[in-house]
């Protein structure tokens, strides 16, 4: 029983020495409690120190270690070797993003989109004074957006989205779910600003409801639902806009 191993094939890309990625095979000691992330750390420590990958918290909250495991977007820290053993595992950088190096991707576009949707509470103009105390919120009001606030910005949903793959102008699942999170917050008054983003062709209308984003999300967020509900909101906004153009 001792010394069981598992084969891991990693799509490597070293920009200073090659023009396109190529696979490299590693063999690491197998144990059922090992995660993909730990296997990568084993490779870096014992087999090849040049391998690059992102990680931080090891507990599915930082959102750094997203990668493709056998073609499916996963968090390395939350995916166990036992679910693949004894088969070979194929690792590749998160799909639909440019590869910076090995398993590291360029996430600039995703980060810009998160920023663009104004991911913060925009209070009403007649802001109440600090001395008036906090904005009260009932559990029902919290429930309206809570699910969408669980996003850890790992980017798995972008890797799962064929529409983002076909056209990166699409605002995409996580950013739109986060947008919904703020628009659905009772303390927020920024819906009107955000609806301008939603109403665009590359806003919610870039989505064809494939629905894979919600399947791969490691935090149980449902971006597909957020987007469909925003389509309904955008349609209402369209009707209102016909009678009251601003």
């Amino acid at each position: 029983m001792a010394n069981k191993t598992i084969k891991i094939e990693i799509l490597r890309y070293r920009p200073e020495q090659e023009d396109k990625p190529s696979p490299q095979l590693f063999e690491v000691p197998y144990s059922p409690d090992l995660t993909i992330l730990e296997a990568l750390q084993y490779i870096k420590d014992h087999l090849d120190s040049t391998i690059s990958f992102r990680w931080s918290c090891r507990m599915a909250i930082c959102g750094s270690c997203g990668l493709m495991v056998d073609g499916v977007p996963k968090l390395g820290c939350k995916t166990f070797l036992r679910d693949y053993f004894p088969n070979k595992i194929k690792l590749e950088a998160l799909a639909n993003f440019p590869i910076e190096r090995d398993l590291v991707v360029v996430m600039d576009d995703f980060i810009n989109k998160l920023e663009e949707i104004k991911p913060y509470i925009i209070p009403e103009d007649n802001t109440k004074c600090l001395s008036d105390g906090p904005h009260q919120q009932t559990p029902e009001k919290l429930a309206k957006y809570k699910q969408y606030s669980m996003c850890i910005n790992c980017g798995l949903c972008y890797a799962a989205c064929p529409q983002y793959a076909l056209d990166t102008k699409f605002t995409g699942p996580a950013a739109l779910a986060l947008l919904a999170r703020y628009n659905r917050d009772s303390r927020d008054a920024g819906s009107k600003q955000r609806m301008k983003i939603v109403n665009q062709e590359e806003g919610v209308w870039g989505c064809t409801f494939v629905g894979y984003c919600s399947v791969v999300c490691p935090k149980g967020v449902d971006p597909a639902a957020a987007i469909q509900l925003l389509k309904v909101e955008s349609s209402k906004d369209y009707l209102i806009g016909m009678f009251k153009p601003d």
């Binding site: 920009p15 200073e16 799909a95 440019p98 590869i99 360029v106």
Partner: peptide, 8 residues
């Protein structure tokens, strides 16, 4: 910079 992001 040796940056050369690869677009699949």
């Amino acid at each position: 910079s040796k940056r050369k992001p690869y677009q699949r």
